[in-house]
Design a protein around this nucleic acid. Structure first.
Lengths: 295, 295
DNA sequence: GGGGTTTACGTCCAACGTAATCATG
DNA sequence: CATGATTACGTTGGACGTAAACCCC
């Protein structure tokens, strides 16, 4: 609805107190700022800026809209920061290889913490792939540090546990299970769920957990979808339940779009492990690991 | 850097598993989707989608980028939701009037909770103004429910406390105080701070708290700025400290862009109060209040 | 007169839709 | 041959910069 440039403009006006100053900061003409603002104001049908002959102030409405805008811009900045790690700098960059869930949710967070603790962090290049590939890259010297979520650790690499990932049973708020206090493991196992294709890390972890809890094997899935994204979408539709990483659904849970249902009789949890070659940690990798574990 | 439509497109492709399906969902031609995707891919210089003659799948990189994109889109959706409350529907809408900090940070959150708990919430119109104006609107029948953060409650309105707002002393991570265990109230009072103009609610609250703690009056400010936005920016510059609402800086604190320093010897805290006319609460207002307090 | 702002106008690029082409199961 | 993707091309609208005018201390 509202484009990012318009929001950035509003915030700049709020910070500087003048359209022209905001224009200088943004590197556009003052007229462009004026135009952007009027477009934004009309699209919200609210007056956001009190213009005057010597400076402009945000109206009360402008203040709160600018506050809301800051949230969006912060999210966009985080995206840009994360995206930068895909291409990475040239030399002296820290090369990370992480399995999907970790690369998506945890690595950006860790890099943020690292940035806050260390004055100047080196460039980072992040690649996302499955656990076996992560380990192969480390052996081949194509990566300095890896993160995996499988229980089976390779013997020829050093490792340390850096966190836990919990799997949670989620349903839409309208689903019958949404109001259940808990679901017993066997009932979960025999109910058709929305699942990733077999072989996916999350599905293997669920399988393994149920098996070690002694419940019957998983029922045939209600649907088998190629991505967590698609699974989430289907669950929000309201007809089926799924088991997903807590990391993947935490915002949905916080917003109330999905509901977590406790499962009794099985430990749905797996360790997240950092791995690196026996030849040792590079300085940057060691520094990052320290930042992660110190948090 | 990346525009929202491109991100939306990527997510749609991930959910549907095909460019054409995504195009239908987005209401554009399939060619447009193809073009958007290629622009995005080249701007990130990464392959995000594995195209094939019968469907397309996200690459591992595509999966994590789509995940990051979802965060941005969720933030944008929250913005749109909040922005809707500025114009509001027509009749049967709940008219809220809130002071700035509450309107900016809390009302959107409360409405989300309300939405999650009640099947269908009515339209909402939100106006932001200072506490006196909020009360006047309630008396005049121009609003159904108000939220204020002043300690002085008008006697002719009903009220209930709905939360607490904490004021926190914040500095940049590079500021000398960033590593201090605590600051004593008198030291805070005699240090020039970055403040809002006198008369602002936050400044009055700080003044009152220090006074009731028996410390000397506040020193002359290091700078007097017209908006919290500007104050935040100056503090991030690193030279000065400020006292701001915890609500206004929580994301900065979480990201490590600012550091909170405990203050000893003074209670920097104020109640957030819902107020409404003696004539009673409307049904919608009562329902909202219940959702807030039940959370 | 020196910020600060708006109005007017011409330019240009980026995004889209139509149409034709290619690939695959 | 139906489905899905790309390439090619012409149109257009929105966003920007230049220029001129206005307003207030």
């Amino acid at each position: 609805m509202a484009d990012l440039d318009a929001l950035r403009t509003l915030v700049a006006v709020g910070q500087t107190g003048s359209l022209s100053a905001a224009a200088r900061e943004l590197g556009v003409t003052q007229q462009a700022v004026s135009a952007r603002l009027r477009t934004l104001e009309s699209s919200l049908s609210s007056v956001l800026v009190q213009r005057s002959a010597r400076g402009s102030l945000l109206t009360p409405t402008g203040v709160i809209v600018a506050g809301w805008a800051r949230e969006v811009l912060a999210a966009a900045d985080r995206f840009d920061q994360s995206a930068l790690t895909l291409t990475g700098g040239r030399d002296k960059t820290l090369r990370l290889a992480a399995s999907l869930t970790i690369a998506e949710h945890l690595v950006p967070r860790w890099l943020n913490i690292w940035r806050a603790r260390v004055d100047e962090i080196p460039g980072v290049r992040l690649t996302a792939e499955n656990s076996e590939t992560v380990c192969r890259r480390l052996r081949d010297g194509d990566a300095d540090l890896g993160f995996i979520e499988t229980p089976d650790l390779p013997g020829d690499l050093d490792h340390v546990v850096v966190g836990q990932d919990e799997l949670v049973l989620v349903v839409a708020p309208t689903h019958p299970w949404a109001t259940r206090a808990e679901i017993a493991a066997p009932e979960l196992a025999r109910t058709p769920l929305v699942l990733r294709e077999s072989g996916s890390g999350t599905r293997r972890a669920l399988d393994a957990a149920l098996q070690s809890a002694g419940t019957p094997r998983l029922a045939d899935p209600a649907a088998e979808l190629p991505s967590t994204l698609a699974v989430r979408g289907t669950v929000r539709g309201g007809f089926h339940a799924a088991v997903l990483s807590a990391l993947a659904v935490d915002t949905d849970l916080a917003e109330g779009a999905l509901v977590a249902v406790p499962v009794r009789g099985v430990m749905l949890r797996r360790a997240l492990t950092a791995v690196w070659p026996r030849t040792g940690l590079t300085g940057a990798a060691r520094s990052l690991l320290e930042a992660i574990s110190g948090s």
